[in-house]
């Protein structure tokens, strides 16, 4: 098996009395697609914010290739090679599609410092994510599916080694979803480790090699998609006690 690229030990986040993420351990291996699922409010997005440094940890540690990143600033972590997308899209309004992607190219792992280099890199990425036709339009005029692509494109422009996708499928129709899934597969084939957060199980099942399930901030299962779909605790968490009992008696 390949090397661990991202490692969490006892990762905990408390908001006042509420424990949003409760002592979660995880290992993500280089080159895999790792899924994180769980019902709404399970702490998935909080966990992602902890990894990229947008929130400070209450306890625990996170390592990227054995370098401790918990406690570091978000821009530092981004430059190390960990990029993310936002569930609620955050395009830079008032800027064109290419300019949005250029921000990523300028400040990311690739470190393009000249306007020309960044521009050319942004063109390549716009082409890759299927935004070529829209490249000179202001992002203010794009629809949700296109904005999700902007999120992806900007994250890719950072030239990350690890890409965290926060519900990139949410709000998309099945065709659009299919296209994004193909895109994610392509990106992964180029050697980028992908961590996907979804609350729709189906989307992750098809893509991930391994996954982890969060429930009320606690990890309740980890394994391959098949193992997860058979796991009692997961079924309980998703479908409730009664369904689980009925299944047993049947």
């Amino acid at each position: 098996m390949s090397e661990v690229i991202l490692k969490g030990r006892g990762v905990t986040k408390k908001f006042g009395g509420l424990v949003a993420v409760n002592s979660v351990d995880f290992d993500v291996y280089e080159g895999e697609i790792f899924g994180i699922i769980g019902p709404n409010g399970a702490g998935k997005t909080t966990l992602m914010n902890l990894i990229v440094g947008l929130l400070p940890l209450s306890d625990g540690e996170i390592y990227f290739r054995n370098v401790r990143i918990s406690g570091k600033k978000p821009y530092y972590i981004a430059r190390l090679g960990i990029a993310r997308t936002f569930q609620i899209v955050k395009p830079f309004k008032g800027m064109t599609v290419l300019e949005n992607i250029m921000v990523g190219a300028f400040f990311g792992h690739g470190n393009y410092t000249s306007y020309k280099e960044a521009y050319e890199r942004a063109e390549e990425i716009a082409n890759l994510v299927g935004l070529w036709e829209k490249r000179d339009e202001l992002v203010d005029h794009l629809n949700l599916a296109q904005l999700k692509r902007i999120e992806l494109a900007r994250a890719l422009a950072l030239e990350p080694e690890v890409l965290l996708l926060d519900e990139v499928m949410a709000g998309l129709n099945p065709t659009e979803m299919e296209k994004i899934m193909d895109l994610v597969r392509d990106i992964n084939k180029k050697g980028v480790t992908v961590i996907m957060i979804e609350h729709i199980m189906k989307a992750v099942m098809g893509l991930s090699s391994r996954m982890m399930v969060l429930h009320f901030g606690t990890k309740i299962a980890e394994g391959t998609p098949e193992e997860i779909s058979q796991n009692e605790d997961v079924i309980k968490a998703y479908l409730g006690e009664r369904y689980s009992k009925r299944r047993k008696s049947a």
């Binding site: 990229v52 947008l54 430059r79 830079f92 990311g108 306007y115």
Partner: peptide
């Protein structure tokens, strides 16, 4: 310039700018 792009990103969305690697 890269600096100007950073500032414009900050104006629109500071969290987004942080996540893009902008100090």
């Amino acid at each position: 310039n890269r600096f100007g792009f950073g500032l414009r990103a900050i104006r629109v969305d500071e969290d987004g700018a942080l996540a893009m690697g902008i100090n």
